[in-house]
Design a protein around this nucleic acid. Structure first.
Length: 477
RNA sequence: GCCCCCAUCGACUAUUGGUUAGGUCACCACUCUUUCAAGGUGGCAGGAGGGGUUCGAAUCCCCUUGGGGGCGCCA
């Protein structure tokens, strides 16, 4: 049984790069009929916040990553928050201490750096094993000084091989990894230790994570070995970068899943686009349903090189999914934005909802973001926002004259159907010798405030007789 | 400073020893059209550099360069 995990730290909103890691874990799990575990790595008491934990779970669910075991679902391998597992880590650490595989270290960071400096090494050269074999006297002296020790792992002097599912065999030579801390002086485990204990106890078979952890993996493997645990498979995914090929950060604009959700991206578009970052099929297919992705996904086809996140392609893909979905769904999802714009309120009548839905369907092919829906359909409900350039170009003296004449014609229109309306306008043009554009453009601007929009006669029909005549009167000479 | 990873159009990628190096986004042109989109057609554009191996290299090896990551009592 394949068991994988996604293990975020609740220190901020879900980041795009982490979202991709979560997605790949999910796809791998589902492809293999396995289990996805959500584990909250909240041992950093300073930065971890409960609200972020909630937000991360919401955002994962939003774009379609569902886990089988996690803090909210419970499960036999829990608890799923590291702060609720502290006893487990202490127990394991105690055992390692008994076995002499870890030792107490009393050095401060400053002391270590100072010694490194004096030894002519780089400050960040790593720990110098100062406390590795402290005499009982030294130990006692430090304790009497009131120093609180950390527990350091006694790194064996042999090479470590990582057999990575995407990178192949990666070898770390002896001496390249200094003795590292597994338990902090406050009694909390470090990331490296907690991860290994948890992955083992949660029966994780494959560790799929970002490449930023590749250099840490030998530490984890040594810990697995020291504790006699089975070593899981590892797969280190390439990183997600910004346009300038540096790590995705605020400089690149929105980097959280939440931000994209708020802008009005469709979850399936986000899901699809993110899956394409660092993974592809032999056919270079671009559009996948979630089911297809689950079926097609494989670790072997994951790219080794980093991928640049391209908001433009995401936007294009979102437009594509907008066109694929139903107007009713777009309407429902854009309700918050419509409310904010004063176009729809709570508990609208069925009639109004139908009216809005039709308006959405007329504009659907142009909608790229849910956030933009009010801009596109607002004039159907509220007084148009007249764009200055449109008015000065088309609602000229001559334009107003034309509108006045059209008004007369429309007033006599009883059926108010696309056909009737169009016939009237075309007859009018012919009778008065106007070119189509001389009439169409002023009409559109007077009714919608914009030079762009749906088909003119569909628009007039849907706008209705009253609003049409009223707006024409306003702009007639 | 030490260690690790990576390298195909501007971006995402396909091509795993023999291809006019393919697709998608973006961009440009044309087309459709009452507008804007969407659609259709076409175009621009790529193997980082240098050495090998081979009849033949984007593909295998080495070096250089460039980019990314790690070396915390952060995760």
């Amino acid at each position: 049984m394949v068991r994988v995990r996604f293990a975020p730290s609740p220190t901020g909103y879900l980041h795009l790069g982490n979202a991709r890691t979560a997605l790949f874990n999910y796809l791998f799990a589902k492809h293999n009929n396995g289990i996805l575990v959500l584990r909250i790595e909240d041992t950093d008491a300073e930065r971890s916040k409960k609200e972020y934990e909630t937000a991360i779970m919401e955002d994962l669910k939003w774009f379609g990553v569902k886990w089988d075991e996690g803090p909210d679902t419970g499960g036999e391998n829990g608890p799923y928050r590291q702060t609720e597992r502290l006893g487990l880590y202490r127990q394991a650490a105690e055992k390692l201490l008994q076995e002499g595989k870890v030792y107490r270290c009393y050095c401060t960071r400053e002391e270590t750096e100072e010694r490194n400096r004096r030894a002519g090494k780089n400050e960040s050269a790593g720990y110098d094993n100062f406390c590795r074999d402290l005499s009982p006297q030294d130990l006692g002296r430090y304790e009497r000084e009131g120093r609180k020790p950390v527990l350091r792992f006694r790194v064996p002097g042999k090479k470590v091989e990582v057999n990575d599912l995407v990178r192949g065999q990666v070898v770390f030579e002896p001496g390249s990894i200094p003795d590292f801390v597994i338990m902090k002086s406050d009694g909390l485990p470090t990331f490296h230790f907690a991860v290994v204990i948890d992955d083992c106890m949660m029966k994780i078979t494959h560790v799929i994570r970002g490449e930023d952890h590749l250099s840490n993996t030998p530490k984890h493997i040594m810990l697995f070995e020291a504790m006699g645990f089975d070593i899981p498979g590892f797969a280190h995914m390439s990183m997600t970068l910004g346009r300038d090929k540096t790590r995705l950060s605020k400089r690149h604009g929105a980097t959280s899943v939440r931000a994209y959700r708020d802008e009005g991206y469709l979850p399936e578009a986000f899901f699809n686009y993110i899956a394409l970052l660092g993974w592809g099929t032999a056919e270079s297919q671009d559009i996948f349903s979630p089911e297809e992705l689950v079926r097609e996904f494989s670790i072997e086809r994951c790219n080794k090189s980093n991928a640049v996140f391209d908001p433009e392609k995401l936007l294009w893909m979102n437009g594509l999914y907008m066109r694929k979905t139903t107007p009713a769904r777009i309407l429902n999802l854009s309700l918050p934005y419509l409310k904010e714009a004063g176009i729809a309120g709570d508990g609208e009548t069925e009639e109004k909802m139908h009216y809005l839905e039709k308006a959405v369907s007329l504009e659907q092919e142009k909608i790229k973001l849910l956030k933009d829906v009010p801009y596109h359909i607002g004039f159907f409900v509220k007084e148009p926002v007249y764009e200055e350039k449109a008015v000065s170009k088309y609602l000229t003296e001559k334009g107003k004259e034309v509108l006045g004449a059209i008004l007369t014609s429309f007033e006599g229109c009883e059926e108010w159907s696309i056909h009737d309306l169009e016939a009237r306008v075309r007859d009018f043009c012919e009778a008065k010798g106007y070119k189509a554009g001389e009439v169409f453009h002023p009409l559109r601007v007077a009714l919608s405030g914009k030079t762009t929009g749906p088909g003119l006669f569909e628009m007039i029909e849907h706008l209705g007789r009253d609003k049409t005549l009223e707006r024409l009167k306003k702009w007639s000479a």
